[in-house]
Design a protein around this nucleic acid. Structure first.
Lengths: 229, 229
DNA sequence: TAAGCGTAGATCCTATAGGAAATGCGATTC
DNA sequence: GAATCGCATTTCCTATAGGATCTACGCTTA
């Protein structure tokens, strides 16, 4: 996410910290690193066959996403999975931010946006939905891209930061580790409704459809939580 | 901000990275590190007489606040000051998040909250307002505490994260470097209005007063931007 | 005069080593 | 039997060193 490979070149010896970040992300999403597990800097360095320095930097970045937590002089631990209450809180927070994003993005009326949104929906339809992160990663990225496109088109870097900070956008998908994606059909349908509002240029409708979508996701996530427990 | 000193002990040998973080923060707020200036890891390490490792970690944390930006293999640079347009965007983002915080916080009706808010207002009145960060730091902290108390009382960790992510709460005050605080009287008055709504337990009024406050701050910040340019 | 190249310096990135603190376990004592 | 103390191991934190890359400056050449 935060890293981007430079366009020119090709191989472009990537920074090690990026590899470590990626490896930790996959491990977290697959559920291999369970909630509460301590993440030893030295240990992880041995496991990935690198020095502790890039591991330290990768963990510092991960901490900002909320995936791990740091206690001074005690190291990092994997953040706990969301409780149903926290998941509901996350959706409430999204209900504050994302409808506003949709409204503003629709106001700006970027002519390229509808096409990009449609592409994201198509990718969502095509993506596999298996239980391992390697499988549902494409789904996650398509879903994320849809919401991020809207957040970016709102053209307000701070709202974008706020959206990013929710982070739960990432964490939410940790639930799918070992389960697979469960709400694809609903999500595709609701995304399409939002797209329609954008095509029509109806900002107020876009806001409302976004509300509908997130409230739907909220209810479905509650159901998933109960299944898992 | 993000760091907390452990309660017991007292001296509690702080982590060096925290000192570096603090030093960089002060330098940024005072305007000693101007926008666009490269922040050399090795150079900063020499200047602060530490090794590059804690500097690297401090910069990684600062990057998450938006105060500095990192280009892979090229190091860090001080993020540019906000343009008037960006400042307006920041206020628009606050208008999305903070009124919702106020509404929810008032709904929760923590009996301790009004007293704490009043204390924050009193501190705001008492704080000096000079042009250097050392002088107006107390003011900044009292203002920050007022808004943060409300954000925390909303009792939704994600909205709190979103509020933190704005970060502009910090950056905004970079404008006061060399100028001093300019809108203290207005801020105190508006904060008091918000407090009244909390005391009355009127959530809808709290939301509205927060809107009034931020819109006021928006207009005043625009004025400051013009003065500075 | 302007453009291209090469070298020197600075900087980033990674690895390694060592001191300090924290955790865990066993022995001792009340 | 339970609690406390002490030691060993693990882990974090910081410093130092070296290789790789980028930047800047001066020189050569057309």
């Amino acid at each position: 996410m935060a890293t981007k490979n430079q366009a020119s070149g090709g191989v472009s010896r990537q920074v090690l910290a990026d590899h470590v970040y990626e490896a930790l992300l996959v491990a977290l999403m697959d559920g291999r690193l369970e909630a509460g597990t301590p993440v030893s800097i030295d240990g992880m360095a041995r496991e990935l066959d690198v020095s502790p320095t890039p591991v330290r930097e990768a963990l510092a970045r991960l901490e900002a996403t909320g995936m791990v937590r740091r206690a001074a002089l005690r190291g990092y631990r994997v953040a706990p999975l969301f409780s149903p209450e926290e998941l509901a809180d996350l959706m409430d927070a999204r209900l504050v931010i994302e409808p506003a994003n949709a409204f503003m993005a629709c106001k700006h009326a970027d002519p390229q946006l509808p096409g990009q949104l449609e592409q994201a929906i198509e990718d969502l339809k095509a993506a596999p939905r298996g239980p391992s992160f390697a499988e549902f990663r494409a789904y996650w990225e398509a879903d994320e891209r849809f919401h991020r496109l809207i957040a970016e088109s709102a053209d307000n870097q701070f709202l974008l930061s706020a959206y990013n900070a929710l982070g739960g956008q990432v964490q939410r998908f940790r639930f799918f580790g070992g389960l697979g994606v469960t709400d694809a059909d609903y999500a595709i349908s609701e995304h399409t409704e939002i797209l329609k509002a954008f095509v029509a240029g109806n900002a107020e409708l876009a806001r409302q459809k976004m509300i509908d979508h997130i409230e739907g996701a909220k209810q479905r996530s509650q159901h998933d939580s109960e299944v898992r427990s």
